[in-house]
Design a protein around this nucleic acid. Structure first.
Lengths: 199, 199
DNA sequence: TCAATAAATCGACAGGTGTCGCGTAAGCAT
DNA sequence: ATGCTTACGCGACACCTGTCGATTTATTGA
């Protein structure tokens, strides 16, 4: 119970928002180091020692911030995805536009981060993107003062997983269509889920 | 390219179906050993050495069958899930019944395997259950001689992810409803996805 | 039955992982 | 400026991982 809570605090990092400049600097350097290494080799082939070296930090310092390299990747992914979405404005005033924009964001982010080298979108990503998308749906649902037949949280979860799964498959398809077109298809598939909450 | 194909062969195991009694015996013992250990501790806290010891096999023998412990868990999960579904008949004659049955299967399987001890449904499971569910949707779609507006494969993927994500969330909910009721909710959420393929 | 084939065992290896205690130095508050 | 707090560096630890070559044991087909 307690351990779980602690791990959560460490992983989410934004719990106390961390103001100490040394902490901010270390985490920034670790993320930059990982980004640099990801351009050279696969994530699985990167050791914590390499990340620490590239960040000019001690390996022990790494573990002071993240329990393992997956946690670093996850934190990085979540931050970059949120930033990408935020940069695009994404007003929740009209729902249809927002849904399509989120879908496009997921597609763009996946193709951006897994660009040419790594062929398969790995699991750690799911732990960071899906919760972020769920959060957006939650925010969107709150504007609706919904009367959920099922449970708006559950709808958001199902929609987020469907969206991510579809985007993931799209990315792995050889002769894939454009991200914009895929976003349209995803919108068509996912919208009915969110609608099914209406009594 | 070649390495990937090899790994696939090793992981899927059912490629040549493996008739050698020594192989069957070893894999059975490894799976039984893992099941036994999972009742005592978390998957992450189990080492390959422990699995091999519990199976009264040499550690090197383990690597003769699976590239790592995740592969073993995945193979085990996929086999047990397929078996659970198969045991329930699950005729694809009427679509609505099948969809609900699959949803119930996922819920039951998750609650069965992650019973009391481990609190969170871990990622390796996704790699085994989701593809299995996708396969069922693929089979179901083939009976429909569909004229897909989007792409029936993509619809199946989105539906499988939505279903798994919802079931996963349900499992983690403290005061959760019955598996049967949840299966009904999942059916309601997912059906529109599969329908959205119609022109 | 016997030889060919292939699985299982054994010991050992070069790495990687996560954690510790202890000392140094950077940041912060009074 | 001064002392308290805390991040960081350092070295070392026990353990786990994935792989190898050499040997023994079981299975299968002729």
């Amino acid at each position: 119970m307690l351990e779980g809570a602690m791990a959560q605090v460490i992983q989410s990092d934004t719990a106390v928002e961390a103001t100490d400049p040394r902490i901010l600097r270390s985490r920034r350097m670790l993320m930059d180091a990982l980004i640099k290494l990801l351009n050279e080799k696969e994530f699985e082939d990167i050791s914590v020692q390499e990340i620490a070296d590239a960040a000019t930090l001690n390996r022990a310092t790494f573990y002071l911030h993240y329990p393992d390299k997956n946690a670093l990747l996850q934190a990085m992914t979540a931050a970059r995805f949120r930033e990408l979405i935020a940069r695009r404005g994404l007003s929740f005033t009209d729902c249809d536009g927002a849904l399509r924009a989120i879908a496009l964001g997921v597609c763009d982010y996946l193709s951006e981060t897994t660009g040419c080298p790594s062929q398969l979108t790995k699991m750690p990503l799911e732990g960071s993107i899906i919760p972020a998308v769920e959060g957006m749906f939650r925010e969107g649902a709150s504007k609706h003062e919904a009367r959920p037949a099922v449970d708006s949280e559950m709808l958001g979860t199902a929609a987020a997983w469907a969206m991510f799964g579809a985007a993931r498959r799209w990315l792995q398809t050889p002769g894939r269509v454009s991200a914009e077109e895929m976003a349209g298809q995803i919108e068509a598939m996912v919208k009915p889920i969110l609608m099914s909450g209406a009594v």
